[in-house]
Design a protein around this nucleic acid. Structure first.
Lengths: 231, 231
DNA sequence: CGTATCATTGAAGCATTTCAACTATTGTGG
DNA sequence: CCACAATAGTTGAAATGCTTCAATGATACG
């Protein structure tokens, strides 16, 4: 069996659960990791790695936004995650990446050789636990997404997405959505048109306000959460 | 932060990846685990534990089929997994279970105290690795399900489900589907009617054959795989 | 300044859902 | 062991709502 030291794309956490903050508490275990890391940069729409690539490295987003996705042979695309600063991307894959990672915006990342990470994890229980925690968090997020795609209506999906982004944002009222509608659509299992129409509705209902390109203001988080909740 | 020794509901693996077999290779690490386990039985439709319950134990299915699911306040239900013999169910949850586990059929399981599992894992690298492998496998399965729900058509979903069940079956041509259409529907994000209509189509096309209640014969796995594949 | 990409809006088509009725099966109590 | 009740599967018809197709408008970028 292959090595499975899963370092993982730390996915969007479910609402009402802070994802990054409690990670900071264990920051020292992660900064230790940084000793074997190297900064890499990547331009918008460039691939960090492709599905099927040998998983030699794993990454942590330092700045910018990255998407984990897969292209299907019929041309459609499936977006599994948006990765924001602090999130890990990488290799729960056996030997190869199961998802591609592409830069939504110009991005800066920390790159860690997987072998090194495994060595450190083997020696450091705290780091090990932290990495496991990340995998579990990702699993929870994936299951949450499963629920969203399987049971929620388009409006609920978009509302959930916004609530999720709000929960992850530094300022919960002020969202920056650097990804395109197509990205969001492929993430939520909807077409671009449907996503936009729903955002239009939410705007008309004064629930959100579009302040600029990629800038959204949440005016009524309560209503938004009510719309989101079918979970 | 809570303990996150994630032992995990080993989900249905994606097609073309054997899930249980390679696990047997590391069986000794798992049999060691059995020293702290206890056999428990559960009747059809009974809950092993509920979403929100304190996650004191984790389980391994010995016989029967279990579903991991969640009930939404609007009455609908979301089935995350079907767990078959050899699969682990349990606690990637922080302190509480995130999903309920209910018996699809009368079932026998091995129950392990989580604290004990964590102790053993801390001491045994092989076991640790094995459990991590299980978590990662589950994550992969959840992402696969995400793709299915987000991108695939109803026919593709049902075909995928059958291919998946075939891949997990001892005899790939002979499937036993103990779960109800409602279970399958909630798993695939479809209504009972749609599931049944599609199964009817597949039967009419001689791709499958329903030999008895809960018994399906796969007559044309190639076509089935073609129908399933949008991934 | 022009081009390519992305967002927006409209209208039509179609597939799944929803609703409803009926049949079959399972299980239970008499 | 039969009969009835409850659950599950099946089929049909209508409705809804998302997708698809198409065109326009806005924005970023060369």
């Amino acid at each position: 069996m292959s090595d499975a030291l899963g370092v993982v794309s730390a996915a969007l956490s479910q609402p009402h659960r802070v994802a990054s903050l409690d990670l900071a508490m264990d920051g020292d275990a992660l900064t230790a990791l940084d000793r074997i890391g190297r900064i890499v940069s990547i331009a918008r729409d460039q691939a960090l790695f492709l599905e099927g690539d040998r998983a030699k490295y794993c990454f942590k987003v330092v700045a910018g936004t990255v998407r984990s996705c897969r292209r299907l042979f019929d041309g459609s695309r499936y977006v599994a995650n948006f990765n924001r600063p602090g999130d890990f991307i990488g290799l729960n894959a056996d030997e190869v990446h199961r998802l591609s990672a592409e830069a939504v915006t110009d991005a800066t990342l920390m790159r860690y050789p997987r072998a090194g990470v495994e060595q450190m994890a083997a020696a450091q229980p705290r780091l090990r636990r932290l990495l496991l925690e990340l995998v579990c968090r990702n699993l929870a997020a994936a299951q949450q997404q499963t629920l969203l795609l399987g049971q929620k209506s388009p409006v609920e999906r978009v509302a959930s997405f916004l609530v999720m982004m709000s929960a992850r944002s530094n300022d919960p009222e002020h969202l920056s959505l650097p990804m395109t509608s197509a990205d969001i659509g492929d993430y939520l299992g909807l077409t671009v048109e449907t996503v936009n129409r729903i955002i239009g509705q939410l705007r008309a209902q004064q629930i959100i306000q579009v302040s600029g390109p990629a800038e959204v203001l949440v005016k009524d988080i309560i209503t938004l959460e009510n719309l989101a909740e079918a979970a």
